[in-house]
Design a protein around this nucleic acid. Sequence first.
DNA 1: TCCTTAATTTCGCAT
DNA 2: ATGCGAAGTTAAGGA
Lengths: 257, 257
Amino acid sequence: MIRQQLLTPSPEDLADFLNRHTRSRDCLVQVAGLAEVTYQGRAASTADVGTYLMVIKQDGSLQIHHPTGIKPMNWQPKTDSITARVDEDVCMLLASRRSPEELVQVVFLEPQVALALELAQAGGFVLRGSEAEMQQTLAEHPELIEPGLRVLNRELMVESGGIDLYARDAQGRYVVVELKWGRATQHAVSQLARYVRSVEGKLPARAVVRGILAAPSITTPARLELEDRGLEFREVSALPQATAAAGGPGAQPSLFD
Amino acid sequence: MIRQQLLTPSPEDLADFLNRHTRSRDCLVQVAGLAEVTYQGRAASTADVGTYLMVIKQDGSLQIHHPTGIKPMNWQPKTDSITARVDEDVCMLLASRRSPEELVQVVFLEPQVALALELAQAGGFVLRGSEAEMQQTLAEHPELIEPGLRVLNRELMVESGGIDLYARDAQGRYVVVELKWGRATQHAVSQLARYVRSVEGKLPARAVVRGILAAPSITTPARLELEDRGLEFREVSALPQATAAAGGPGAQPSLFD
DNA sequence: TCCTTAATTTCGCAT
DNA sequence: ATGCGAAGTTAAGGA
């Protein structure tokens, strides 16, 4: 499982280590220690000398973490090229990709640990409770939005994007429904307005098109803009309450701090 | 620098290790090996048995990585509580937080490596070339957008959000400028339209308010909607050309694969 | 705290 | 490749 581990490696050893294990593309490589990081591409950044943890995965994706926070300080989603070399008595790593063209450069001033791990088998992964699932439920039960509603399409593509639900109401008027899994924002109102305009453009003049924003809640500014534009809001409780995972929240004996 | 390292630890040893080092809040903890992960909170997810890498940082943020991809398979931005315990002869870790209430549970079936690292000094961090910098440059040189433009405000707050640049043109008409650092999308057009409406609402009736979207490029649908709404586009090259980092792209001797 | 926006967003899907 | 929108988005900043 541990392919190789080095402690306080020399620049040469570290460069060898990095080149060998990144090329084999079958293990996860990490180096922790004092380093300096620069990025240039979509933006440009420099991280001062500090203690960081660099992780390179099998697909060549690279991330450099500082001591706190969920997001890496620097990263590269997938690299075309990773090269380590010794330059002026330090090991330096260059990770680059095209499209967009960008480059991450790491200078390892005092590498403390280098570790190559085999992460062989990845199990299946299932996520439940996304907006897609909410859409499916409401498509099957449109009466939860409004009695008499009949769904014509799901994910109907118009030039301005995809309409979550396209329907007709009890009076035969066309209805555009925009779903939000969480609290609806002004962004959602803009989206809905755009879709309504698109549909109106496709129908004969004077056809009435209703726009309904369906979400568990809505922000105050969004509500104002919605009413201002003659659109409607329907409160829809977040539906798919997943069956509680083994040992639900609320039974931890001790605290993190 | 390595606080402690365990190889193929027993469930009891691993639980002790995790509890001790997560509580001290001064090191980065990681465990690699065969595990099973479930999440419940904003959504719900299950990862079948597989080989994963779990990292817990000093602030209690947790991420579990599978072999590929930049994003963790499961994560928790900052936990209120992290607890490890032995249950049915395996070590199990519970990481939870409130607001939103969510829980990550990791069952370590065959832990291979457990490592506690000190990542002491974090370097300062500088990022350049963001939209903020573009805004500053254009605020100081509004003639790059249009001759005769005078900037009245930057980041002017209106009820619908913040206007990047608020200005008057050579004819004295008010101008709302929305900046995008990258390619402008429909989203940016909606934003601009919202701001123009807000400003029109504050001015005497019939006042003319121009809306200008300034970006290096614009998508076709966005351009259509922009013109449809009587708004304007100005091409502005991505200004802050960062001074090339040492050893810019295009000089790698060898490829990643 | 709520709300909005930026992000080197990433990711996936459709054209 | 481009365009669009979701995401368990995260993170920052103002009201």
